[in-house]
Structures are given as structure tokens and as C-alpha cells.
């Protein structure tokens, strides 16, 4: 198996005025292609910060984050944006769809920034919506969709550029348990198809479902062993 993500001695601290607030300490982590990893930990443990760093939305204070074979700490803002668009797919707890755009347009959006031709965009978005059972919902706006449907649109959006890693931040956190299970089914299916998934969750049951659990506490990894 190929390593898709390697985190070496990463620390992150924020500045609150003159005060330096450390959030992550000396994180080391490797994720192999096709792994389904859960990131757990109490709030304030640095889960979201870790996801933001992996997601190239933020830069570490020190240490290296290597995605594929590229050290992201050496990349420019534009290159980071390219990586976010092509190699990463984000799925958020609150879906983060754009409310004035239809499901179809929301799914097309990441392809726009990669200059993918229009016809190809429409076709690809359509395929994914069909695959996620939303073929008849393509022209609806997020406000006209249920929570589960919205999260499926968001998953389609995350998959649209065929990313190397899916980053899901509590994807079932805003859903009832039945819908949550449906979404987890989708993740399991994606995993079985060989997707690499990193998922933040509070839910022990959902985490057990994953191949691997990483527990964060006070900005440190407690154990990274396979369970």
C-alpha cells in the first residue's frame, strides 16, 4: 500500500494577542491509501485544527505535512488551492452548500476552479448525484432538500474531482441516527471502493466501524495503533 499522507513533527499554535496558545504538539501520523481512519477526541483536543492542516486550509507552525509526494509547507497559496481542489474532498458537519445554487451547481463548483469543460462538468455531477440517489433532486436548492440529502450532495461535491483523501468533519453530527447510518453506509461503500477517508467523529460506534482510530487529547496523539 502507498502512503498518501505523512505528518512529521507537526505543531500548531495560535497567537491570542501576545499569548501563544499551543493547539497541536509534535504530531506524527501516516495514512496509507485506502485506509478509513477515525479521529476522535474531546472538544478542544485539536481535531479540527488537525483536519484544517491536512486540508491545506491552514499551515503548521512547524513540521511537515506530505500529501502524496509533496511537502505542503513549501507550497504557495495558489498551489495549496490547487491541492484542495484536486487531491482533497471536504465534507462538513453543516454541509456548507451554497444555498442559492442548485444541487447540480453545488456539485459542479469544485470542477469550475479546475477549468473542467462545461459539458464534462454537467455529466460528472449528474453521475455522482445519480450514484448517491439524488438524480431527481439535481435541480433543487439545498433549502428544498432534507439533511441527509444535503449531506449526500456535499459528498458528491467532495468526490467530483476524484480526490486522494476525503476529509469528513463530523459528517453525521447534524443528522438523526437513521440518516446518520445511511451516510455511514455511503462512507463504507466508498471505503470498499478503495477511497482513503479521514473522519472526525464523537461517536464511538461510528469510529468502531473504521479500520483505524486515532485519539487526540490536549493536542497529542494518544495512540495510533490499528484496532
Amino acid at each position: 500500500m502507498r502512503g498518501v499522507l505523512k505528518i512529521e513533527n507537526v505543531s500548531k499554535s495560535y497567537h491570542l494577542g501576545k499569548l501563544e496558545v499551543p493547539v497541536l504538539h509534535d504530531i506524527n501520523l501516516e495514512v496509507q491509501e485506502g485506509e478509513f481512519t477515525a479521529v476522535m477526541g474531546p472538544s478542544g483536543s485539536g481535531k479540527s485544527t488537525l483536519m484544517n492542516l491536512i486540508g491545506c486550509l491552514d499551515r503548521p507552525t512547524c513540521g511537515k505535512i506530505i500529501l502524496g509526494d509533496r511537502d505542503t509547507s513549501l507550497l504557495s497559496d495558489i498551489e495549496l488551492a490547487r491541492i484542495r481542489g484536486k487531491k482533497l474532498g471536504f465534507i462538513f458537519q453543516t454541509f456548507n452548500l451554497i444555498s442559492r445554487l442548485t444541487a447540480q451547481k453545488n456539485v459542479e463548483m469544485p470542477m469550475i476552479y479546475q477549468d473542467i469543460p462545461r459539458q464534462q462538468r454537467i455529466k460528472r455531477a449528474r453521475e455522482l448525484l445519480d450514484m448517491l440517489g439524488l438524480g431527481d433532486r439535481a435541480d433543487h436548492r439545498p433549502g428544498e432538500l432534507s439533511g441527509g440529502q444535503r449531506q449526500r450532495v456535499a459528498i458528491a461535491r467532495a468526490l467530483v474531482n476524484d480526490p486522494e483523501i476525503l476529509l469528513a468533519d463530523e459528517p453525521t453530527g447534524n443528522l438523526d441516527s437513521k440518516t446518520g447510518r445511511e451516510i455511514m453506509e455511503i462512507f463504507n461503500k466508498l471505503h470498499s471502493e478503495g477511497r482513503t477517508i479521514l473522519m472526525v467523529t464523537h461517536d464511538q460506534g461510528l469510529a468502531q466501524n473504521c479500520g483505524r482510530i486515532i485519539r487526540l487529547k490536549d493536542g497529542r496523539i494518544e495512540d495510533g495503533k490499528n484496532s
Binding site: 488551492a81 490547487r82 469544485p110 476552479y113
Partner: peptide, 16 residues
């Protein structure tokens, strides 16, 4: 603001 955040997360550059 949030929409801009989403745009950036899905690959929009500053220039976009």
C-alpha cells in the same frame, strides 16, 4: 464569508 470559505475549501484561489 462562509460561502467564500467553501469556495476556498473546494479549490478556489485568491485570484478566482
Amino acid at each position: 464569508v462562509k460561502e467564500i470559505g467553501v469556495m476556498k475549501a473546494v479549490g478556489a484561489t485568491k485570484q478566482d
